[in-house]
């Protein structure tokens, strides 16, 4: 495992920790899109179908369990915790995420490397992950006061996939059997590009020492 991949995974982990910290300590999920969180839970379920059958490394298995467990605990907090769920801003979270699921499923059935159940589900998870942040980005744009933890959460999440792209370049250059990943690369590039606008305003607000606010 190269440093880009590891740093990417750590950023991903950090984003989840930041979000859970906000929810658990502040007992608030204000500004967080439940729809994006539902999409991530679905992404992890479909991608980690092999969690108990295909062993890669202890690191991989543990990380998969951590991502699945954290995704479901976030969902539980936002939907069922008696204090946290009242801070969820349902009216601002209006993205039609079922259309994303449908579109990604159709695309996965049409464009994949291999037509097997596991491979199509894996491909679906790659497509869905690329666009899962959209409800959250829309919600951020509507939120007047984005708190630091929410801003950092999205920033770490974007950095994670950016680092994965460096990892793919590195692996492409250093590994012999690493040439049929174009599907992941295109999706990963789109996923990272979606954050470009957010990154711009995040860095700008950080440099000017101002509160983060996205233009409507």
């Amino acid at each position: 495992m190269n440093i880009f991949r590891f740093a990417g995974d750590m950023m991903h982990l950090l984003s989840v920790v930041v979000l859970l910290l906000k929810i658990h300590k502040m007992k608030s999920c204000a500004g967080i899109s439940l729809k994006t969180q539902e999409l991530y839970a679905l992404v992890f379920i479909c991608r980690y179908l092999d969690i108990f059958t295909g062993f890669i490394s202890l690191y991989n298995t543990i990380m998969k369990i951590v991502f699945l467990a954290s995704a479901f605990s976030i969902l539980w907090y936002m939907r069922s915790h008696k204090v946290v769920r009242q801070t969820y801003d349902k009216d601002q979270d209006t993205f039609r995420h079922y259309f994303l699921i449908l579109a990604c499923m159709v695309l996965a059935l049409l464009v994949h490397h291999k037509f097997t159940f596991r491979e199509v589900m894996w491909t679906f998870s790659i497509y869905l992950e690329a666009v899962a942040i959209l409800p959250q980005l829309v919600m951020l744009q509507r939120t007047r006061n984005i708190d630091n933890l929410t801003g950092n959460y999205v920033f770490f999440l974007g950095t994670y996939r950016g680092l994965y792209m460096l990892n793919w370049v590195y692996r492409y250059l250093t590994e012999v059997h690493y040439h049929h990943r174009w599907l992941t690369w295109i999706s990963g590039f789109i996923q990272t590009a979606l954050y470009a606008d957010f990154f711009y305003y995040y860095v700008k607000s950080w440099r000017n020492n101002e509160k983060l606010q996205l233009p409507a």
């Binding site: 991949r5 995974d9 991903h12 991608r47 092999d50 295909g54 890669i56 991989n60 990380m63 998969k64 991502f67 490397h113 291999k114 097997t116 596991r118 491979e119 894996w122 994965y164 990892n167 059997h177 690493y178 049929h180 990943r181 992941t184």
Partner: peptide
């Protein structure tokens, strides 16, 4: 299987 075994990333 080369493709399925290649899913070694998270």
């Amino acid at each position: 299987d080369e493709i399925e075994d290649s899913h070694d990333e998270l």
